[in-house]
């Protein structure tokens, strides 16, 4: 058994941030606890029945006192809220230069793939000191990817992409827990994060069968599954071209304008009738059930990679 500790290992930049905030909260909790427990104990002794303490002119209320012990907590609340909200904003938004890892949760395992193509199950190797962003979805129920040592957690929701990021600051191995109840073997849906020196990480990443990168897999799917048959300049159907699409605004036939983010691309592949680009007919067949979650993620990664190109 490890040595007894009060807080988990602090192995990411967020861990330090959140622990300081937590320590401030503990200090404020202690302040309020003492300001309630001390008078209660004191009054309970001094004014116990039968004591001859002076009880004349008891007060039954004072608006001044009431207003002050209403206002002080409000002021402290707003301060704590702001601190928590700023830190949350930081935790929730991955930096643009982060390494990309794609994660698919299923009952009861984690399937991970690094952008370079390396696959893992229930393990996540990451380099020290570099931000890593996880793009996650689930192929069945809701899970949650929780790494206590990094103080990060995000639900992994079917039909949706969620993200989580961290920058590891300490070498070592840390728990991965599924923290959203997901059925029979929920408590077995665990794994470990391995934080490595960047050089060792590079070596690990390129060792073994290696395989192709996510973008290359996506491009292969784009060709093999017939996407390129229609989404091409010389297509016999009138279809939108996908070069330069990612992250750009798309006018819809409904008059709305949406951003072509991961969620939009995913829905367009699986539920093509949901949002129809303005000027096009609803002719695309749904690929629901024909592509695995990993394949959809690879396709999107490919579409992302051609997001900067202009259409030929």
């Amino acid at each position: 058994m490890d040595k007894f500790r009060l807080i988990p290992p602090q192995a990411s930049t967020s861990a330090h941030q959140i622990d300081w905030l937590f320590i401030a909260l503990v200090a404020i909790m202690l302040f309020f606890l003492i300001s309630v427990f001390f008078p209660i104990t004191w009054f309970a002794i001094k004014y116990r029945s039968g004591s001859d303490a002076n009880r004349s002119n008891p007060s039954h209320g004072s608006n001044l006192i009431e207003i002050s012990w209403t206002t002080l907590p409000i002021v402290l609340s707003v301060a704590l809220f702001s601190w928590g909200a700023v830190a949350y904003y930081h935790i929730e938004r991955p930096p643009p230069n982060a390494l990309q890892v794609q994660i698919v949760g299923k009952q009861w395992m984690w399937k991970l793939q690094h952008a370079e193509g390396k696959r893992e199950i229930n393990e996540l190797h990451v380099p020290l000191g570099q931000p890593v962003a996880l793009t996650m979805t689930s192929q069945d129920v809701i899970h949650s990817f929780f790494v206590p040592a990094f103080r990060v957690k995000q639900d992994v929701v079917p039909g949706k992409y969620t993200s989580e990021w961290f920058k590891a600051t300490q070498l070592g191995e840390y728990h991965i827990f599924c923290s959203q109840y997901c059925g029979t073997d929920h408590s077995g849906m665990i794994g470990r994060v391995v934080v490595m020196e960047p050089v060792a990480y590079q070596r690990w990443l390129t060792a073994g069968e290696g395989g192709e990168s996510i973008v290359v897999s996506g491009r292969r799917l784009f060709l093999d599954r017939g996407c390129s048959g229609c989404h091409a300049v010389n297509s016999k159907f009138h279809t939108p071209l996908l070069e330069g699409l990612f992250d750009k605004p798309v006018p819809l036939s409904s008059g709305e304008i949406v951003k072509a983010d991961e969620q939009y691309l995913r829905d367009s592949i699986l539920l093509p009738g949901k949002q129809i680009a303005a000027g096009y007919d609803n002719i695309m067949p749904s690929y629901a059930g024909q592509l695995s979650e990993e394949e959809i993620m690879q396709l999107i990664a490919y579409l992302k990679s051609i997001g900067d190109k202009t259409s030929p």
């Binding site: 967020s14 941030q17 959140i18 905030l21 937590f22 909260l25 404020i28 909790m29 609340s77 704590l80 809220f81 601190w83 928590g84 909200a85 830190a87 949350y88 930081h90 935790i91 949650s144 929780f146 206590p148 103080r151 990060v152 957690k153 923290s179 959203q180």
Partner: peptide
């Protein structure tokens, strides 16, 4: 302790 779970960033860690 409800304040801890109301604080966004701390709740990310202690939620569930």
């Amino acid at each position: 302790t409800g304040l801890c779970v109301a604080t966004l960033a701390v709740d990310v860690h202690v939620h569930d």
